[in-house]
Design a protein around this nucleic acid. Structure first.
Lengths: 247, 247
DNA sequence: CGCTTACTTGAGTCTGGTCAAACGGGGTGG
DNA sequence: CCACCCCGTTTGACCAGACTCAAGTAAGCG
């Protein structure tokens, strides 16, 4: 289910090739190499960590996709955010490591693991990386703000259109796109739990978007047919994306 | 509407007296004193900054309360989070200063202003404070996670009970409480916009909580009568609160 | 005293939820 | 190779929680 794999050295990190990530200095690269304690590979559907557990690692997604979520006692689930390559996982817990949400893989995932207890070294000796960390946290917060706006104030069809547009956009930035096909294997249940809707209503509303010719739904995933229409219905608009830091 | 006031020197900062904030070293205190560019006082109902504007300051709330929010074109508003003393405002924008949400005061507020452009000095020379900044961002993200869970998955009465319990708790930590009276002057419209509900439905559901004897609603604010009942209905539970950093 | 802001209340509607059942493809064990 | 099962998806019928519209009250203020 979860196992260590032979690590990709940071200097060959495949994410660096993507244009929208900020470059590291040689020194930073060396530090990250030391900071990284290993790689973790988990299967689709498995849990990286659970709410209320203690997690002493931070992770950066190298490959694959997953999601953060919280649950109520009776099983109602809210997906908080999708995780894609370059995203940092685990910062949202208390910095000491007590997690207040769970993380599950949608596809098989590879993650770089970092030792939380060495975080202070990062802050002490690499202020550039420390700054990046805050940048990352702040970006994550903006994403959550958007989601909250959707779930709180948009109608069902707007929410669905919005999230499909947003996920498409994010996926493209990290290479999780093949043509118009978004390579994030979510089910309609995932969609529903992200948007605060029921599965049935999600299905029926999604069917409308399909009829409108905005998207095509595939088994576990989708294809954007008319990105403009999707954005218009969902009220989604691109942000100015400056190269972003990671790790 | 907004004006500079004679600044309270950081070493006399009234927030430091509150037990749940972390203490500064002498050195950090000196740095903060220099980092702080002044104080801002704004009236209840006025806007600190608006979505899409550029804001070159970071602020810490010294006194009073307000809220962050986003709006859709047609005026639907979603309140993202309430702001209380000790909270940092403005970090959620891109670090460069483009804001993606607005901030409005609910009571008159006093804020300490910091110059964003000097943030790099903070990272370079005061890794402890840099670490704090990430801590603060991560705490904020946990708050948003909770809110998203509420808005997405709780029923109207659960949402209201939850937020009232949570706000009571937060308010008490920063001295915004007099007896059982929560000194955060929100209207039912604020509540509705926080929870993704209509004003009318919020009013009717709140009336139930009043009938149950859980709270008493006051003009712009409320009083907790039965905190246990409120927490039970809303599914709210206290977190272990370690002394938290600020500024 | 009249205006505004916040809160109430009632009536009727509708978006979205629940329950129930069925379909279709992929995998598996007999 | 086929029967069966499971998971994700689809559809229909019905229900209800939450919304809109419309008034009306009450307190605060110039």
């Amino acid at each position: 289910m979860a196992r260590r794999t032979n690590a990709v050295p940071c200097e060959l990190c495949p994410l660096r090739k993507l244009s929208n990530f900020r470059a590291f200095s040689r020194e930073e690269l060396l530090f990250m190499k030391a900071f990284k304690t290993g790689e973790l590979r988990i299967d689709a559907g498995s849990t990286l960590f659970a709410e209320k557990s203690i997690n002493l690692n931070l992770y950066t997604v190298l490959e694959g996709s997953g999601f953060r979520y919280k649950m109520l006692e009776d099983g109602r689930r809210q997906i908080l955010n999708f995780l894609m390559p370059g995203d940092l996982v685990g910062l949202q817990g208390t910095l000491s490591g007590a997690m207040e949400h769970s993380v599950e893989a949608m596809s098989s995932m590879t993650l770089c693991a970092f030792d939380r207890s060495r975080l202070n070294t990062l802050y002490r000796d690499h202020s550039g990386l420390a700054y990046d960390l805050t940048w990352i946290a702040s970006r994550e917060e903006r994403l959550l703000d958007e989601n909250l706006l959707s779930v709180g104030r948009r109608t069902a069809i707007e929410r669905i259109a919005y999230i499909l547009a947003a996920v498409h956009h994010r996926a493209r930035q990290v290479g999780l796109i093949a043509g118009s096909h978004v390579n994030v294997p979510m089910t309609q249940q995932h969609l529903a739990d992200t948007l605060g809707l029921s599965l049935v209503h999600t299905n029926k509303t999604l069917a409308k978007l399909v009829r409108y010719g905005a998207v095509r739904w595939l088994d576990r995933g989708y294809e954007t047919i008319d990105a403009g229409l999707l954005a218009r219905i969902g009220g989604w608009r691109p942000h100015s994306e400056t190269p972003r830091p990671f790790l």
